[in-house]
Design a protein around this nucleic acid. Sequence first.
DNA 1: GAGTGGTCTAGACCACCAG
DNA 2: TGGTGGTCTAGACCACTCC
Lengths: 246, 246
Amino acid sequence: MNHAALPIQIDRSSPVPLYFQVAQRLEHMIESGNLPAGTRLDNEIDFADQLGLSRPTMRRAIGYLVERGLVIRKRGLGTQVAHAKVRRQVGLTSLFDDLAKSSRGPHTTVLNFTVEPVSDSLAAELGIEQGTDLYIFERLRHADGEPLALMRNHVPARLLRLSAAELERHGLYELLRAAGINLKIAKQSIRARAATAAEASLLCEARRAPLLEMTRSAYDEQGRTIEHGNHIYRASRYSFDLTLTG
Amino acid sequence: MNHAALPIQIDRSSPVPLYFQVAQRLEHMIESGNLPAGTRLDNEIDFADQLGLSRPTMRRAIGYLVERGLVIRKRGLGTQVAHAKVRRQVGLTSLFDDLAKSSRGPHTTVLNFTVEPVSDSLAAELGIEQGTDLYIFERLRHADGEPLALMRNHVPARLLRLSAAELERHGLYELLRAAGINLKIAKQSIRARAATAAEASLLCEARRAPLLEMTRSAYDEQGRTIEHGNHIYRASRYSFDLTLTG
DNA sequence: GAGTGGTCTAGACCACCAG
DNA sequence: TGGTGGTCTAGACCACTCC
């Protein structure tokens, strides 16, 4: 099923690259179901001609969609919209982002908040200079009125100004973004363990209840350590969902 | 620090694309420490000239490295090797792959193995046709002589021939690859929970010990369901390590 | 054989960043 | 002001798939 003419407008005066205008428009049409799974796209040359673009530019737009798993390209066969199952997503977000998006009324209590020079062992683990000042804080997060997670974090103090008050109103990643800090990559480890008595009490769980524990280090483009966190979640109320691609 | 001449040989008679030859060579030089973090690459045009390539081809090679986080490109500034921390990896692998790579002597016992028509509820969950035959099997995996994980899996029988004997000798993903099945994407969920009495006994854990539980559905390019699994891991001996990018 | 995507070239102009 | 990457063009040839 070829398409005679997809309604894609191109604005050559826009600072947005042409390939990206096309890619975004197509992405939107796919996500909205306007181009159902299995739909075959016109071949690259015709498609480019229809939009008044060169083939490399058109190809780049499609390449963007291929990269995100929205579309499948096969030599000799053509290009078609992928099944919904094969659509990638998920990235470097925070619990607050996730809860806010699903409108589960996140609420945060800052249990403690200090600025201290980093300990030698932690400095080595984070790969930062010894003696650097760190924000160290612990937050208890609720969702839907129930305790959900206990989060301990470290953030180098020179990166931005933080306060307990701000951390009760906003997510950490939200504050980082507002300070112009762009996370590039994070490495995290997910484990399970039994709650200590103190943790159980804070999270309203039974003693030795199973917990999900996540440790994450996040870095920016230059490889600077931006954030290090150890979070524990009530196993009964939280899981990590992720998408892997190969 | 510019490089007068990087020792990169190009074989124009090879079926391997030129951009990929260059990208692979650079990737290897970075991974091996031959190009340390922070090293500045020559600009795209000079670099292309040195190798006898056009700029777009050179650019594509570098683009491959940028995509993988090995290198950082900045307009007006140049391109340099990223810090090791900002290197991405990890993908769609299996426990067996991981253990084999770290030579921890994986050993597998197949606890049961059947072929049955899929139940209606499972057919809906997996998005496969009702009545399809499924391999259903349960494996206990050891590493370093200790029980590590209990794995329950479902695989549509029409995809390949499986046997208990093969599953004791090889990992599931290894067998899938050998059958020419390429996984494109997987969605997984990671939770924590307490062990049941039977699970605790199989895994040599105490009753109600915390376990890591992972459920995964894996699909190929066309969105066909290839595999569905529910695995439980001893929390004391396993964790999920992953890299997120943004 | 006809049609598709995969690769490659040789140019061009622009936007950003440094000195 | 000069150098860098970011984008775009108009062609070319090849490899694969299907009929």
